[in-house]
Nucleic acid binder design. Structure first.
Length: 932
DNA sequence: ACGCTCACG
DNA sequence: GACGTACGTGAGCGTA
């Protein structure tokens, strides 16, 4: 019954993207009950298709129809002009997962559904319209996009589906002032701010049409531009000729594409009722399913809708099956996966490497997963022989793709805006890819999703998440790599063993994502995830890759000096003790102090050993030199081993710099943590330790700049607890600890003694930590009763603080979590515990909103910083909780300080209006010691 | 592997 | 009435 497309045929071309966006914006967010999948746009899309189908009767009915979609964001137009559509807003988060479903919906209606990588839907429609016209048929384009108006004429018309208004030649003339053939000329001149087509500055559609009508076409106009009377207009056309010609190329649709299908493939077919009903049921659309079933004259299938998330069993589990994972060994096999990724719009990615330090390790292989249970591993650099093979052990194993070939094939998907790349701790993989020249974006991260939802409940490593949320224990890596000295790197793992392990990681990640993504809304942490967690990934990746220059010679000299002093102290200590012992063993030190010397005040740890912490030794030091010497020795040993020695090992041989790694999901409160090495605890409190910072230097011609928030936690406390006296003090720029002391002890500010101020300062910090009489007493070394008196006095003067504390604890007891000002949730599972646990949990709950809000503030500043300083010769290097460190060219220091301070001081805006202004102190110098 | 101690905010 | 406590981290060392 197939008829050849030709005279008498009528082709309908539906602009799929326009349908999707209209559907998305017309409907409120709607989620599928069973799993929370957003389906609002799909529902709207289905409605529009249904209305379309219903309206297709009578003599004007189409014989052929197709819905045409965009695919990928990179087209030949981006090659012509990299700014094409560059200012287009990113696709909304909850729309992206619905895109593949709109394809499914179209197929469910048995309507042809077409898209071609690298081309816009407009080009496909242009080509089809020309083919149909040339074959003698009629064409109707269902779209209101003015870019398509150039196609109108000779049997091609547009139909605005919203206004139900047909647009023919006259309609185009009305809109553009020229015939359809000249529409591109007008667009080339007028440009298009939506698509970021430049055009000619200062010329709009009206003027453009005037000029084209006068000179006939664009080429003639540009050739004869000298003749234009208005001087400004003339000059614009002469100056911007290249830009105008480029614009024409951008707006000109491609009517001669090679299509992998023919018009005949687009013939109108009746829907297959079962397929359509199956799709609607799967989407859990009750009303729409019933309506369409009625229209089709069939019984509506029962759509089961769960009443709450808890009642729903886990989405029917596809069992984990390592045998199903594919090993991808050549380009053809990889291409199959890439095609599937484009079709899906998302992919879970995992990299395997030769180690854990992403600045050093080599890429060994890549895993991909597009659907639960369906994953592959692409081995790239596995060695042929195991490590203990003495002969030819560096030969590559057979059957692996060439690294560059693989990365070149994957790069388009990994960099495409249209494909979401899903990872578990994506910062790691993104840094690896970055070193291989691939800029992975956009990304989702299951670790960060878990962190946003479950901070405080458990850690967010893959093993934990898989066990907890998928009920599946991942294949352990240990048996593959071995332990200790005989451990091998992943490139020595035989490929057949690597495949199940590596592919499973991607499979797990995808399943976690499918589960977590819809839950972000339910748990109301989407904004936290999207503004405070995820955007930090590229920012931190860049900072970590920047690294900071560390001068090994400086450290080395200090290390030698420390060693000498330690040797001297060691000898003295042996003499004082009367025998040799291990100075660094607390148990031995305790034995000497509390048994051999018989000193009082010793306590034992829960393991039964003598305890010798610094504060105890400090008290003893007044009685006996031994304790003081131990303290001195310990300080030096700490500085030497942790800083001057270990830090040198962390200098990267390629960059000469130290590259820390930040954990985004480590600290429950939202703070970052720095590891390998920890650069957030470089000494500063003692003069000797502080000198370590002299080794953190700027390159020649550059300067280290440090900006830190002044008293940010106390300011946040003043805001949250609404303490007017504190707010006023910050407003007036008064010394906040002195003010506290003055209020508490009725001492005028100008008679304040350092001792009284010190006590008030301890109380201020104590408040932030969830103060207790015992803790304050120990900190200030005063009797417990006296400390309690201070606290009572404090609460009398600042009753808002006590209220904040009580309110916070009762909120935590009721809800099981506390919140920062920006909505970050910190779970408090122990808050209702009995016994000593309870005290910990209470204090943590009191502290978390304050510490967490401060953490949120600096995160916001960091996310905004790269754009703010983009045109400055400056790099952001480190974050130390309330401080950001930069390396800046000497001439740009003041600029950088001005801009970065602005970003930091206003970081809470516009989400939160703080009653207290945030203040930022700045310093600069050749090294970190000078900058602080 | 774990506890102790100590470096930072 | 006793208990055991300042909040949040990471690293190096000694000891099991």
């Amino acid at each position: 019954m197939t008829t050849q497309f030709g005279k008498g045929c009528h082709l309908h071309l539906i602009d799929g993207s326009a349908f999707i966006f209209r559907a998305y914006h017309a409907l409120p967010p709607l989620t599928r009950k069973s799993d929370g999948m957003p389906v609002g746009a799909v529902s709207g899309f289905v409605n529009m298709l249904q209305r379309y189908v219903e309206g297709n009767s009578g003599p004007d009915a189409p014989t052929h129809v197709a819905v045409i979609f965009d695919k990928g964001s990179h087209t030949f137009r981006n090659d012509l002009y990299d700014q094409y559509k560059a200012n287009r807003e990113a696709m909304p988060e909850d729309l992206r997962p619905q895109i593949p479903l709109t394809r499914d919906a179209t197929r469910a209606f048995n309507i042809a559904c077409e898209e071609i990588e690298g081309f816009e839907a407009d080009d496909i429609m242009a080509t089809l319209a020309h083919q149909a016209r040339d074959a003698g048929g009629r064409v109707t384009i269902l779209s209101s996009d003015k870019d398509l108006m150039q196609l109108v004429g000779d049997g091609v018309e547009m139909l605005d589906p919203m206004k139900n208004k047909r647009i023919d030649r006259d309609g185009v003339l009305e809109k553009f002032g020229v015939a359809p053939e000249r529409v591109v000329d007008v667009q080339a001149l007028a440009g298009d701010s939506v698509d970021n087509v430049p055009g000619a500055p200062g010329i709009g559609i009206k003027t453009a049409a005037l000029l084209i009508n006068e000179y006939g076409d664009l080429e003639s106009l540009l050739d004869r531009a000298q003749e234009i009377k208005q001087p400004k207009r003339r000059q614009t056309l002469i100056d911007h000729r290249a830009q105008i010609e480029l614009s024409k190329q951008l707006v000109q649709l491609d009517c001669d594409m090679e299509l992998p299908f023919t018009l005949d493939d687009l013939e109108v077919k009746d829907p297959v009722v079962d397929d359509l009903m199956a799709f609607l049921t799967e989407m859990e659309f009750r009303t729409v399913t019933k309506r369409i079933a009625d229209k089709l004259g069939v019984e509506a299938p029962v759509v089961e809708v769960a009443t709450s998330a808890e009642e729903v069993a886990a989405p029917e589990a596809v069992p984990f099956d390592a045998d199903k994972y594919e090993c991808v060994r050549d380009a053809a096999a990889l291409q199959v996966w890439i095609d599937r990724i484009w079709e899906r719009g998302y992919v879970a990615v995992d990299t395997e490497t030769t180690g854990l330090n992403e600045m050093v390790v080599d890429l060994v292989g890549i895993s991909l997963c597009v659907e639960a249970g369906q994953a592959c591993y692409v081995p790239l650099a596995h060695k042929a022989a195991p490590a203990d093979d003495l002969f030819g052990s560096d030969d590559m194993a057979d059957g692996q793709m060439d690294m560059d070939t693989c990365l070149d094939l994957l790069r388009p998907v990994l960099e495409s805006d249209a494909v979401m790349k899903i990872g578990q701790n994506m910062k790691y993989d993104a840094k690896i890819f970055a070193r291989y020249g691939v800029a992975v974006a956009p990304i989702d991260d299951t670790m960060l999703m878990s962190y946003a939802m479950n901070a405080g409940l458990h850690n967010h490593g893959m093993d934990t998440l898989s066990d907890r949320y998928l009920g599946h224990t991942p294949i352990p890596i240990k048996p593959l790599l071995g332990t200790g000295k005989s451990a091998i790197t992943f490139d020595r793992v035989p490929i057949d063993q690597a495949v199940p392990y590596a592919a499973e990681d991607a499979d797990i990640t995808l399943r976690l994502w499918q589960q977590f993504k819809p839950q972000l809304h339910v748990k109301q942490v989407t904004t936290v995830y999207e503004t405070l967690e995820r955007p930090l990934v590229p920012v931190l990746a860049q900072m970590e890759r920047n690294g900071i220059k560390v001068d090994r010679d400086t450290l080395s000299r200090m290390s030698n000096a420390f060693a000498q002093k330690m040797a001297g102290l060691e000898a003295e200590l042996y003499q004082l003790a009367g025998h040799e012992f291990n100075v660094q063993a607390p148990a031995q030190v305790g034995k000497i102090l509390f048994e051999e010397m018989g000193l009082e005040g010793g306590k034992k740890t829960k393991t039964g050993q003598w305890s010798t912490p610094a504060d105890v030794l400090e008290d003893l030091a007044t009685e006996h030199d031994f304790a003081g010497r131990i303290l001195d020795y310990r300080q030096l040993a700490k500085l030497k081993s942790t800083y001057t020695d270990a830090l040198q090992e962390h200098v990267n041989p390629d960059t000469g710099r130290v590259h820390t790694s930040y954990s985004i999901a480590g600290a429950n409160t939202g703070r970052l943590a720095s590891t390998d090495p920890n650069l957030q605890n470089i000494p500063i409190r003692t003069e000797e330790g502080r000198r370590i910072r002299e080794a953190f230097v700027a390159e020649p011609g550059k300067v280290i700049v440090a900006l830190d928030y002044s008293q940010i936690e106390l300011r946040i406390l003043a805001h949250i607890a609404g303490i007017d006296a504190l707010k006023q003090a910050f407003l007036d720029g008064i010394d906040i600890h002195a003010m506290t002391a003055s209020e508490m002890f009725d001492v005028p500010l100008d008679e304040m003694t350092p001792e009284v101020r010190r006590q008030a300062k301890a109380i201020n910090f104590g408040v932030i930590y969830g103060i207790s009489g015992f803790g304050l007493a120990r900190n200030l070394r005063i009797p417990r009763g006296e400390a309690q008196g201070f606290i009572d006095r404090y609460f009398e003067r600042f009753p808002g603080i006590r209220k904040y504390m009580d309110d916070t604890v009762s909120f935590a007891k009721e809800h099981g979590y506390v919140q920062t000002l920006f909505g970050r949730k910190i779970n408090t599972p122990e808050i209702n515990a009995k016994g000593p646990h309870a005290g910990f949990a209470k204090r943590a709950a009191i502290n978390a909103p304050i510490q967490g809000t401060a953490a949120d503030v600096i995160r916001r500043a960091m996310v905004r910083m790269p754009d703010a300083i983009a045109d400055m010769p400056a790099k952001m290097l480190l974050q130390v909780h309330d401080e950001l460190l930069f390396e800046v060219e000497t001439g740009a220091v003041e600029d950088l300080i001005g801009t970065a301070r602005e970003v930091m001081e206003n970081a809470s805006d516009p989400a939160v209006r703080l009653d207290v202004k945030l203040a930022v102190d700045a310093g600069q110098g050749a090294n970190w010691a000078e900058a602080h």
